[in-house]
Amino acid sequence: MSVLIFIDTTDGHVKKSSLEVLTYGAKVAEQLGTVAEGVVLGSVTEDLAALGKYGVKKIHQVADDSLNHLDAQLYAKVIAQVAESTGAKVIIFSNNVDGKAIAPRLSVRLKAGLVSGAVALPDTSNARPDDPVGRGFVVKKNVFSGKAFANISVSTDIKIIALSPNAYKTVAGDGTAEVVAFNATVDAAKVKVTNTTKASGEVVLTEAEIVVSAGRGLKGPENWGMVEELAKVLHAATACSRPVADAHWRPHNEHVGQTGFAIAPNLYIAIGISGAIQHLAGVNRSKVIVVINKDAEAPFFKAADYGIVGDAFEIIPKMTEAIRKLKGVA
């Protein structure tokens, strides 16, 4: 028995969300009295052994070049082979773009119940000592777009958990992992990747610790310079409300809310956003929420931890300035 963690990579680099699942998976293994192992597909430029500091003991690598890009069908087949050979009883993914594609396929392949969007460690307190993962395996996940949670009981022999990004804190300790080549049967990929575009140097919205978001209160796209500047001093990602994206003031991939991205940063700063229920649905899992709005009656203040009632155009530059001072940058 083991806990198997999928280590997701991009361009040969281990994603931040992978460090979260490694930390989480090691904790699950400890809880079940077993070991945590990892699986990584394709070629990786980073030192995999160093990932041992997150608690993983062994990493199985299938370094086949046809796995350098995601084809969920192929990935699920290969991960299933690793899972079978290691006797994995719990398999862990990040509920990120790749996890959402692979985990459901693997769930079918292994007939393993899947909990996607998990936000906490599984509750195994009702499990029997002789059968630690057999029954009473309950995982908490978000439902109703962050407005509620559900405890999902998984009844299958093998369980799959897809952990929400930013829901579990990465903890690094000591240790190195043993990296072993895994010999898998790899079919030809059916999905061909012809192009990849990535905004370089920007903080990725779904992974960001801090997000600066602005709404219609900013009046027009020409006023986003100050929002970007604030984001820059905070090393934050930028986001926006739906009407802002719909009006093409900002790109679609900044739209947060019920019908855009759901995010859970440590700090969410909402400027000139009214706080409609559909907007809150995408940001309500943020740990600290700051609202800046000129209308004291804006519904967002009810969901906020800190707030300023005032004009965004005056407050944003002052805030940028104050943060610069705090960080000691000119």
């Binding site: 393993a112 509620a148 405890n151 707030g307 009632v309 407050i315």
Partner: peptide, 25 residues
């Protein structure tokens, strides 16, 4: 393969702490 054992609501926020507009620091 799964069943819902129960639902819950997240704890309510403690309430917003307001800071004056002329005191951004």
């Amino acid at each position: 393969l799964t069943t819902v054992a129960g639902f819950g609501l997240p704890p309510a926020k403690a309430g917003v702490k307001l800071v004056a507009a002329d005191n951004v620091e």
